[in-house]
Write a protein that binds this DNA or RNA. Structure first.
Length: 418
RNA sequence: GGGGGAGUGUCCCGAGCGGCAAAGGGGGCGGACUGUAAAUCCGCUGGCUAUGCCUUCGUAGGUUCGAGUCCUACCUCCCCCA
């Protein structure tokens, strides 16, 4: 790890955010001399960001924290094209309406990590649809296209792998890198942006932007990429039973989010504390020194800190309490995720299978519920379900006024009669 | 334009003499063991009002008692020739 002099690069480096930097010495000097403006692009292919996007968001956060100005670039325009990097197939083309909806849904998350405004260090939200949608094709070819060499573009990994594997690469996708490069130039002109950050897979795209900026404007631009984060057992981050680990509380409850981090593998705890919390390096070192069973304390801290960033302190504390009551004290935790059911329906009797699948959504179908009963994976009020024909009724409501359903040891739901 | 090959369980890869809800992996879920970890072992992995019924093998037809498997057309992809 080289010794950066600017706080910005030093913090990113010591926390493990840096994979590659272009001309690190010059960037370092600039960061020390004044405010740098840098951006990261986010595409709008889904209705919420997931933990995979958390790393870039944290980079922007630290950027602002260390005195610089972050730009969040929403890919309203580029999402219409689709990034071919790392994809073995063309992406589904989304409708403009869908992109617009996704974009609106995603924006909110950034408020939790960045301070937006008009001040010199306030974060800026940009959308490349603002300039890409109105491009004139011929003008664009003459002004921008002339700076791109097909020979060189063909050598880029994202293109090369597709060609080597003889997979279709549409002209549409082929243009993605040009548009992304152009974004950098546009942001430089509009906001004086000098730095583009992103995942390591974006290195080539970012360098294209730097090249284009040099040729079109004679500007000196910089690239900074973060490593690809996988768990120590090699899996990509952000996948669980229920699917992606969304940052939106409507798609994944704060409790489930907390649980995701609580279940971090031992070998990842320290790294994740540095990347996904804002605890000081000293605090992290202390937590990372814990061994054996004690490392669970570090995991709890990781979970609460990470949850607090996304969902707020209160939600994190509630999740922690619910987890402690559920796992350590074996009592009912009212803060577990819950669904309501009409009391009248409950009085009529509710089959266990339907309760787990249709009501609680813990399993995908009645058949799945049936299988779980066979495997001993379902519990009602902490008692294993042995009869798939069991009927839940008012008598199953505990003194806390709920029925607790569990799938395995870790996933719990409360049914509340109303 | 001509010749050849391929598309399989909506997570992925991949076997499949005309009797197939379809081998085997990976992944995932559950169980055991643990520390709500990893590793390991075991089970499960299309749906339903369930000893049966329904929907699945690129799409649409056809042959057959019966088709993923044979025939025809179409779509998509790949290879060779031009």
């Amino acid at each position: 790890m080289s010794a950066y002099k600017s706080e910005f690069l030093r913090v990113l480096a010591e926390r493990g955010f840096i994979h590659q930097v272009s001309e690190p010495d010059q960037l370092d000097a600039r960061a020390r001399a004044g405010v740098i403006t840098g951006y990261i692009g986010f595409d709008c292919t889904a209705a919420s960001l997931h933990v995979g996007s958390l790393l870039p968001i944290m980079m922007l956060h630290w950027m602002q924290r260390t005195g610089h100005r972050p730009i969040v670039l929403m890919g309203g325009g580029t999402t219409r094209v689709g990034d071919p990097s790392g994809k073995d197939e063309s992406r589904r083309i989304l409708t403009d309406a869908a992109i617009g909806e996704n974009l609106r849904a995603i924006r909110g998350i950034f408020d939790k990590f960045l301070t937006f405004g008009d001040g010199p260090r306030d974060a800026v939200m940009a959308n490349n649809a603002d300039w890409l949608n109105s491009l004139n094709y011929i003008d664009f070819l003459r002004d921008v296209g002339r700076h791109f060499s097909i020979n060189r573009m063909l050598a880029f990994d994202s293109v090369k792998t597709r060609l080597e594997r003889q997979q279709e690469l549409s002209f549409l996708e082929f243009n993605y890198m040009i548009l992304q490069a152009y974004d950098f130039v546009e942001l430089h002109e509009r906001h004086g942006c000098h730095l583009q950050m992103g995942g390591s897979d974006q290195w080539g795209n970012i360098i294209n932007g730097i090249e284009l900026g040099r040729r079109m404007l004679g500007a000196q631009l910089f690239a900074l990429t973060s490593p690809l984060i996988t768990t120590s057992s090699g899996a990509k981050m952000g996948k669980t039973a229920a699917g992606a680990v969304w940052l939106d509380a409507d798609l994944l409850s704060p409790y489930a989010y907390w649980q995701y981090w609580r279940n971090t593998e031992d070998g990842d705890v320290e790294r994740f504390l540095r990347l996904f919390t804002v605890l000081s390096i000293d605090d992290i070192a202390r937590l990372a020194a814990l061994r054996g069973q004690e490392i669970n304390e570090a995991k709890k801290t990781l979970a609460s800190e990470a949850t607090a960033l996304v969902h707020g302190r209160d939600a994190a504390a509630a999740a922690e309490t619910a987890a402690r009551q559920t796992f350590e004290e074996g009592v009912f935790a009212r803060a577990l995720p819950s669904v309501e059911i009409a009391l009248a329906d409950l009085e009529k009797g509710l089959g266990v299978l339907a309760a787990f699948s249709e009501k609680a959504g813990l399993v995908a179908s009645n058949s799945e519920a049936r299988r779980q009963v066979k495997a001993g994976g379902l519990k009602v009020n902490d008692t294993t379900v042995t009869d798939e024909k069991m009927i839940l009724g008012p008598r199953h409501v505990t003194q806390d006024g709920v029925i607790k359903l569990s799938l395995g040891r870790k996933r719990h739901m409360l049914i509340k009669p109303v």
